[in-house]
Design a protein around this nucleic acid. Structure first.
Length: 464
RNA sequence: GGCGCCAUAGCCAAGUGGUAAGGCAGAGGCCUGCAAAGCCUUUAUCCCCCGGUUCAAAUCCGGGUGGCGCCUCCA
């Protein structure tokens, strides 16, 4: 597949370091609160990347960290009167609930910063020894001037970065662009012992260390949100490459933002919706549908209206799957020419072509919709259809579903005695042309969230 | 100030040199006891504007206009 590589600014064919294997590092959440839908975008997108690479036969090692020590963690923990560790535990658990709902599979490893303090200290020590980092009164900074390639990911000339640097920088630093890799303990902060005294790691160093530990010196793909390009990812590159002397990651992938009223959603701006809150109004898969309906690098505007659109779209696919499932339970029929012809159409090839093109999920979904319409057109006649046909397309949906992490997850509805009895009763009433009674039963079921559809093949029902 | 992105129908969104995919919403029709679901038809002579290159441009180049982002914690 082709990947747009932020490092080179071009689309490139993905060639892994080790044939048949792919190593991916994705920056995970800081677990100080529920995550918002802007945070959810990279989780969903890169989970889809992982699924697609696995579908293509790669053995994928996917690492996503939990940042469980930083300023925000400390603030929040203090505010709630609990320890940073307790806060972390709590929101890691909450992350997992939302992630599961969104169809985000657990990573191969979910390392936590606080569980890698010795390794972090060791990497900092190496950097200090090599002259890439220096200590000032318990703080340790990275010497950006020492790394010639600093700025290669964000494509910013170092001088210009300096020109834009803010006032209020720590005057003790050798250079305004230098960043902290180790922070001296302040009053009331959790801290660990180190060669530079009590302190805690800077933000950027944890990713360098954990990527290194679980994936090696050089990894295939590193991904995250666009806002991490500078300085976070730039700093990761500096630390890792100066420490190990080899390229850190071959491919860098960055997703676009989620906007609200065309402005970037962010915690600090306050214009955000948590995934947990949206889930009260829309099912989790609707959020995933929303995310996948546009290309991952484009910014997308979030609104309830767009969620409703995503919901209706998703239902269109689910309904088609439901109908196929329903037909498969019903009467079989010999395979017709039309059915044969439809089964020979190669939706999979088009789907793969779209996904191969830098994960074009919007285009891939359009293939699914084409298939849905073609199936519906064929089975619209109310006749029984070959089980061979229904099997074929249910399998096709399963493939697409496995890659996108969407639709078709619902378990086949078991036979429910009570519902069946009522449906039976209603059928009797209909036969006797007692439509008042028939409608009464239909309304009764509707109140319980059971929707009925009368089809020539029998009565089909679905929940919600 | 530096660097960069985006502009396609009422809404969303693919397409990036060969004559506008797909979804949502709307309208009309078919089907239905009525519904629901679905199907069919319909909705951009045209892709922000102005120039240019080309046999050919929404797609490339130049210039505008509008919107957004990074340079600071941020997915």
């Amino acid at each position: 597949m082709k990947i747009f590589n932020t490092l080179t600014g071009t689309k490139e064919e993905f060639v892994p370091i080790t044939p048949g294997k792919a190593s991916i590092y994705a920056c995970g959440p800081t677990v100080y609160d529920y995550f918002h839908i802007g945070n959810a975008r990279p989780f969903i997108i890169f989970d889809t990347l992982r699924r697609y690479l696995e579908y293509q036969g790669y053995q994928v090692t996917f690492v996503q960290n939990f940042t469980d020590i930083d300023d925000k963690m400390i603030q929040r923990a203090n505010r709630e009167g609990i320890t940073v560790a307790e806060l972390g535990e709590r929101f890691i658990a909450e992350y997992k609930k939302d992630a599961e709902g969104l169809g985000i599979r657990p990573a191969s490893v979910h390392p936590r910063a606080t569980e890698h303090i010795p390794q972090i200290i060791q990497m900092i020590q190496t950097l200090v020894e090599k002259g890439y980092a220096y200590e000032i009164d318990g703080d340790v900074y990275f010497r950006t001037k020492q790394f010639q390639e600093y700025g290669k990911l964000s494509h910013q000339p170092l001088e210009e970065l300096e020109a834009g640097a803010r006032i209020g920088v720590d005057e003790r630093k050798e250079d305004a662009m230098d960043f902290a890799v180790w922070k001296k303990q302040k009053e009331g902060e959790p801290a660990w012992e180190s060669p530079w005294g009590m302190g805690r790691p800077g933000w950027h160093i944890e990713c360098s260390v954990m990527a290194n530990q679980y994936l090696g010196h050089t990894i295939d793909i590193h991904c995250g949100g666009r806002d991490l390009i500078f300085p976070h990812h730039e700093n990761e590159i500096a630390q890792s490459e100066c420490c190990n002397g080899v390229p850190f990651a071959h491919y860098w992938m960055h997703n676009g933002y989620i906007n609200i009223d065309h402005k970037k959603m962010s915690k600090s701006a306050g214009n955000f919706f948590t995934v947990r809150d949206i889930a009260k109004e829309f099912d989790y898969p609707v959020m995933r549908m929303f995310m996948l309906s546009a290309h991952y690098r484009s910014p997308i505007n979030f609104s309830k209206e767009l969620m409703s659109q995503a919901k209706a779209s998703l239902e269109r696919i689910e309904t088609c799957i439901d109908t196929l499932t329903f037909l498969r339970r019903g009467q079989d029929a010999p395979l017709t020419q039309e059915e044969q012809a439809l089964m020979e159409k190669d939706y999979t090839a088009r789907f793969e072509q779209a996904m191969d093109d830098d994960l074009n999920t919007a285009d891939a979904l359009s293939v699914v919709f084409d298939m849905v319409r073609d199936i519906n057109t064929l089975i619209n006649d109310g006749q029984p259809h070959s089980h061979q046909l229904t099997e074929h397309f249910l399998k096709e949906f399963e493939v697409f579903s496995g890659v996108l992490g969407l639709f078709g997850q619902k378990k086949e509805q078991g036979l429910d005695g009570e519902i069946d009895a009522l449906i039976q009763q209603r059928q009797e009433a209909r036969k006797a042309k007692n439509y008042q009674e028939a409608d009464r039963i239909r309304d009764l079921l509707k109140e319980q969230g059971i929707l009925l559809e009368d089809t020539p093949q029998g009565v089909k029902w679905r929940r919600e």
